[in-house]
């Protein structure tokens, strides 16, 4: 119960960051927080096993999900690095005020 709510809160927070932040690295941090929220919901929604254990299936799904989000984050950061190298900026705005 509590962790389902926490998952929803994290999802909302991460989503907010992904849209409201302008720096791409901050956006990626936020996406990671949002996906952690989804993982929490996936595992805590499953009914417990008869012996009180946690359902192994969502656990395995979440493990796979964690690996995928590392891959996505690493690729996103490589894109951010290239953006910085090519255009010298760290946001996705159309034009950035020169600073």
């Amino acid at each position: 119960m509590m962790f389902i709510l926490l998952g929803a809160v994290l999802f909302a927070l991460g989503l907010y960051g992904a849209f409201a932040r302008r720096n791409v690295v901050l956006k990626l941090v936020a996406v990671n927080i949002a996906s952690s929220g989804v993982f929490l919901v996936v595992v805590s929604v499953a009914p417990p096993l008869p012996d009180g254990g946690t359902d192994p299936l969502p656990q395995a799904l979440v493990l796979t999900g964690i690996v995928i989000s590392v891959a996505v984050t690493a690729f996103g950061l490589a894109l951010a690095r290239r953006l910085g190298a090519d255009e010298g900026r760290a946001t996705l705005d159309d034009e950035e005020e020169t600073s």
Binding site: V29, T73, D93
Partner: peptide, 20 residues
């Protein structure tokens, strides 16, 4: 993931590590 973020931070220009 933390290390990944920190690595890329080192590649960003100084003034690009704060929100505009």
């Amino acid at each position: 993931t933390g290390v990944l973020f920190l690595e890329s931070l080192g590649h960003l220009r100084r003034n690009k590590t704060v929100e505009p």
